[in-house]
Design a protein around this nucleic acid. Sequence first.
RNA 1: GGGCUUGUGGCUUAGCCAGGAUAGAGCGCCGGGCUUCUAACCCGGAUGUCGAGGGUUCGAAUCCCUCCAGGCCCGCCA
Length: 581
Amino acid sequence: MTSRRALFSLLPLGGLRLSSDTGRDSDMFCMLFQSIEHALREVTGLDEVLLGEGGEHADLSSTVAFNLAKIKRAPPAKIAQELAATLAARDDLKEIRVEALGPYLNFHFSRAMVERALQQATMPGYGSHPPREERVVLEHTSANPNGPLHVGHIRNTILGDTLGRCFRKAGYPLEVQYYVNDMGRQIAIVVWGFSTLENTRLPGEKGDHHVARIYIAANRELEANPGCVADVDHLMQLVERGDPATVRLFRDAVTECLDGFKVTLARLGARHDRFVWESDFIRNGDTERVLGKISHMPECRDDGKLWLDLSSAGFEKEYVLRRSDGTSVYAARDLAYHTWKGRNYDRVIDVLGADHKLIGAQLIATMRILGEKAPEIIHFEFVSLPEGSMSTRAGKFVSADELLDEVTRRALEEVTIRRPELPEPERQEIARSVALGAVRYDIVRISPEKSTVFDWKEALDFERQSGPYIQYAHARACSILDKAGEFEEYLALENEHEMALARHIIRFPMVIENVVTELKPHLLAGYARELADLFNAFYHFEPVLKTEGLVRRSRLTLVKATQNTLSEALATLGIDALRTM
RNA sequence: GGGCUUGUGGCUUAGCCAGGAUAGAGCGCCGGGCUUCUAACCCGGAUGUCGAGGGUUCGAAUCCCUCCAGGCCCGCCA
């Protein structure tokens, strides 16, 4: 390790002077990737050339020689060697060093290229892609308004919001929607509770928590008096029929809960562009229109209730759309909603809980039969409590509000220990950002298909692999830049800490691209953490302010690129990039 | 019972879809490092039958089959 560093320092500097008019191409890494992939395709004649990250061995690498070996009946190492020679001779790969290491084809970017790409990383908005045409609509959270958002719901919120931020960063025109289920049975139960039970709102009680209290009490009451269920059914019929008084009762209850949601969502840094009310699809006739169209389909069955036979698509279960009392079922309204989305946007994405897997698949199948655009659905698995699964109805949940309160309290403790000299309001401000970073990161870092158990200890951990860890790396970079004052950008990367950091920074635009194509926000979480790791190592081993001349300027430029990239990555994760903490 | 899904060191987790270079991290544990650009940090060490068993392949954590365990779903709920 030491010897390699020594070797590097013997290399001539040959630094790159930076000027502001270079770097039109804002995602150099993507371009390099594409040109290598293109060259590989030409040279091998294969469509799939297996180009991927090179890890410790290279910037990019390919295992295509193995596949070619089968076709050409020659040893993969020999093929790799021949490919490397051919590729190295190409004009379009002039600045890339191609090497065959055994059967592997390794591609190394020249230092000059890394430095050029790095220069782009110092500019505001780094990682953003040019505007695209495709209009995207993203639905997330959409929790039933019968109680506050809890730690399960906000997995949806944070996943969706992060994905939305990635889409915007990737250049897509995006609208984020919240689908308000304002006419379901749960809401009818809330309304029934409001009209029959003691229901005064406690002083200081948030609307959503108030609604939950009534909802829990109403459910208890209904369990004790099953006869009252008919009253709830009646409410549902009245609201579907558009009975003005009932509609107002539903709307008031839902609004009270929704107002509470909006406060929580704002605390989480999540923003919806539009709240779409389910009942609007009854009122505007869309649901009726969809059901009318469906009634003419060969898959349609009407035996009192109206349902679809989706067995041709592999579903055994009846897909019920209208009850025998004439009222529509959620699935019917959902079809109307998705038809509307499909006709107004080019790409429709929903973030839904794993409990919606079946109904989601049925929805997609039906949309296809209808000839409408089917949504892409991201399902996330459940968050449970150590004592079992959460239930709003049973009052068994940890609300997002109490999670944020508790994490903020802990964060304030931590800030107060570390920065006792700061005035209270400033400490509170930092604590709020740290808490948000901790909560959001803790959730987004886990891939959605993993079911998790909520753990206070983990939620309150601000150390490695946490949001605050990344925020801290950013604050450190800011601290150096603040102390450095003015400097002229210049790059001459010397040692392996600098190179490793630089190589990672230039991948950022590609990470954004990957998140939106694969719909995997946790890739960004991992990227940001690795970036912080690499910066911390650089920070520890390579002094910046104590050096002089070109080395100082080069390292400062690298710090600036890191700070900027961390800041952009954190913003895309919905986490505040603090300048001090 | 049927369907979907997850199973990776004591704990949490990446990698799996598009199979290849010694399976990456973090917590915890052991040992080091703050007169030094913020120690919410860094460095080193121990810890893995990648749930089990078969199969495909030159090569399997990754693909296929069976089984086991957890989660979710299977309502004229949403």
